[in-house]
């Protein structure tokens, strides 16, 4: 069981809690306590807006073990509006084509279940096309 490894990351996974650098204001995800931009210590919590755009994407047909239940699925490099790029699945695509530059927003979804139907459910961020809203 991999419970501890996932459990301690719940804030990052559920709600994109990262860090902001008190020296250069860079926004950091995943949190790493050392600012990758200026090298200073950066431990101030920062919750990302979850808005971003597709930087690159692909579809996985042959999934690694633990992910076959939802294959095929689309993964993307998502450029967050605060700067960092993160790797995440795209979801709720329906029949919508994906393009580089497509605006997306973060949702919290099931990433996988451990040990098929008996283990814990692992939740985390994914991104979907921005929900269109009537004027």
């Amino acid at each position: 069981m991999e419970i501890p490894r996932h459990w301690r990351l719940k804030q990052q996974r559920y709600s994109l809690v990262g860090e902001t650098c008190p020296h250069c204001e860079a926004k950091i995800f995943p949190p790493r306590d050392v600012c990758p931009t200026c090298g200073g210590e950066a431990k101030t919590q920062y919750t990302f807006s979850g808005k971003g755009e597709v930087f690159s994407y692909t579809t996985i047909y042959e999934a690694p073990s633990g992910y076959d239940e939802t294959a095929p699925y689309t993964v993307a490099l998502v450029k967050l509006e605060e700067g960092p790029i993160i790797t995440a699945q795209l979801t709720d695509l329906g029949d919508q084509p994906v393009e580089i530059g497509m605006p997306v927003e973060m949702v919290t979804r099931k990433l996988r279940s451990e040990n098929e139907d008996r283990g814990i459910l692992i939740y985390g961020y994914k991104f979907r096309p921005v929900l269109s809203r009537a004027a």
Binding site: Y14, T70, T91, V107, R109, K110, L121
Partner: peptide, 13 residues
């Protein structure tokens, strides 16, 4: 619901 949705994820949104 999609394959990655359940009452927890839907309640969160």
């Amino acid at each position: 619901p999609g394959l990655d949705e359940d009452v927890a994820t839907m309640s969160i949104e």
